[in-house]
């Protein structure tokens, strides 16, 4: 009995850290979301649900950022998951070449986001950039674009950069998941006459579902919070076409000095991520199976 009480003491340091870095900021954001605090002054007033009402009915930019973020998220989640899975299937065996390839795929992940932004801004430059030059070199001039200057495609260009940046990280999760699947199951599937697609559909995918859940959920959260890449590459432009919720919160809080309103958007942001992550977990859980 005494020992079981003592064990709670060991929770205290962890709980304190958790409270300082997660609970208090979350509760304080919720608190300030009902105020008009400017982030600097010593005083503020309660404004009830005005900030939330403004976000949903009186702020066209916020609605645009939600749309931009959903586009960005969809492209990143689909492409990043599929590419990481495809590459993981290619490099699953522990040969020397595959180990080298895994390291190469993982390499972008260790770069700083500002460096990645710098590299890709140069790649996308309409006149000096390597992407348009390569397209011209191979006779695909009609595909050359103003990649981050054209408001219609800029958000997708940023999504591609995000995929390049983080796909290697997801590849490692998939490789670990794939290597954990017992080989006997594939042997049984082969004896039963399953072709490669059927083996993937009936054996690989169901047993990979836990890894896929982590990859999809993590990618979703990551794509919602891709602040640094967007900030460094386009600053949300042109014409707010790449403004996402995280960069908008920054603008509202630190450029417009409306911390109360920025807090309300942060709370909405948190709820959106929670709902999407919950739905993803639920959808992917239905695919799980054990043999």
């Amino acid at each position: 009995m005494k020992a079981s009480k003592t064990i709670y003491l060991f929770f205290i340091p962890g709980f304190i850290l958790y409270a300082i870095f997660f609970l208090v900021p979350t509760v304080s954001a919720l608190f300030y979301s009902f105020t008009d605090w400017d982030g600097l002054s010593a005083s503020f007033q309660f404004v009830g649900f005005d900030n939330y009402s403004r976000a949903f009915t009186g702020d066209s930019i916020f609605r645009k950022t939600v749309g931009n973020n959903l586009k960005f998220m969809l492209v990143v989640v689909i492409l990043q998951t599929l590419l990481a899975l495809a590459f993981a299937l290619i490099v699953i065996k522990n040969t020397k070449t595959n180990v080298l390839l895994r390291a190469l795929y993982f390499f972008p992940t260790i770069l700083s986001s500002v460096s990645v932004a710098f590299i890709w801004t140069f790649i996308y430059d309409p006149s000096l950039g390597i992407l348009n030059q390569v397209l011209q070199l191979v006779g695909l001039d009609f595909l050359t674009q103003n990649w981050i200057g054209n408001a219609d495609i800029a958000i997708y260009s940023l999504a591609i950069t995000q995929v390049w940046f983080h796909a290697g990280q997801m590849l490692i999760i998939f490789v670990a998941g794939l290597q954990a699947i017992p080989k006997e199951l594939y042997e049984v599937a082969e004896i039963e006459g399953a072709n490669k697609w059927q083996a993937f559909r009936r054996v690989t995918w169901p047993l990979l579902a836990p890894s896929a859940t982590i990859v999809v959920a993590y990618t979703t959260i990551q794509s919602f919070k891709a602040f640094d890449l967007v900030f460094a590459m386009t600053g949300g432009g042109p014409n707010n076409s790449t403004e996402i919720i995280a960069t908008y919160i920054f603008d509202i809080a630190f450029r417009s000095y409306q911390f109360g309103y920025a807090s309300s958007i942060s709370v909405i942001f948190m709820v959106i991520i929670a709902i999407i992550t919950y739905l993803q977990f639920k959808a992917l859980r239905s695919d799980r199976i054990s043999y």
């Binding site: 900021p25 640094d228 919160i249 911390f259 942060s266």
Partner: peptide
């Protein structure tokens, strides 16, 4: 702290 974390 939270805004800085969110805004990176």
């Amino acid at each position: 702290g939270m805004l800085l974390v969110l805004a990176g």
